[in-house]
Write a protein that binds this DNA or RNA. Structure first.
Length: 158
DNA sequence: GCCAACGTTGGC
DNA sequence: GCCAACGTTGGC
């Protein structure tokens, strides 16, 4: 089983939005990045776990845990001209973009915010969100880093 | 709003 | 295949 970190702008889609969805499940659609597409296709599997990260907001950080609820499959929004992420170059018989379904698991007892994560960078070497210029919206997380961050959740807030 | 960093595009 | 220009991301 693999672990992931998935970013979303909370103004657009937050951990609370996911919790309120029917069956607490939602398609993680709109990803238009080839590296992420390849991860959806090749590496991410139903049953994996992911941190829900809020980005581009007053307090960026990890807010919850979700389960990957499907393997990758074609993102229907790429074929719909009314959608922001419509891709005229992608054909249904040869879809360019994939998505996975995600299912709410829980909110963290307290968010583990980016500045706090930074203070532990010595223990989190290789964690992608700490690397300069890291903009990928979906990144793998090593199990040791996953466990360490969950330990931070249970420690006193800084 | 600024800006650094990265991805994508397109001319050559 | 190179690389400049442009668009986007995302922290601050």
């Amino acid at each position: 089983m693999a672990y992931w970190l998935m970013k979303s702008e909370p103004d657009c889609f937050s951990i609370d939005d996911l919790a309120k969805r029917p069956k607490q499940t939602a398609p993680w659609d709109g990803v238009r990045n080839y590296q992420v597409r390849n991860m959806f296709r090749d590496n991410m599997k139903e049953g994996d776990l992911a941190f829900f990260y809020h980005s581009s907001c007053p307090e960026p950080g990890i807010y919850g845990v979700m389960e990957i609820a499907s393997n990758g499959y074609p993102d229907p929004t790429q074929f719909d001209p009314k959608q922001d992420h419509y891709d005229a170059g992608s054909k249904p018989e040869e879809p360019r973009w994939l998505l996975v379904d995600v299912k709410f698991q829980r909110k963290l007892k307290r968010p583990v915010l980016l500045p706090e994560i930074r203070t532990h960078e010595a223990k989190l070497v290789g964690l992608r969100i700490l690397e300069k210029g890291s903009r990928l919206s979906v990144t793998p997380v090593k199990k040791e880093h996953w466990d360490y961050i969950l330990k931070l959740e249970n420690a006193k807030a800084p």
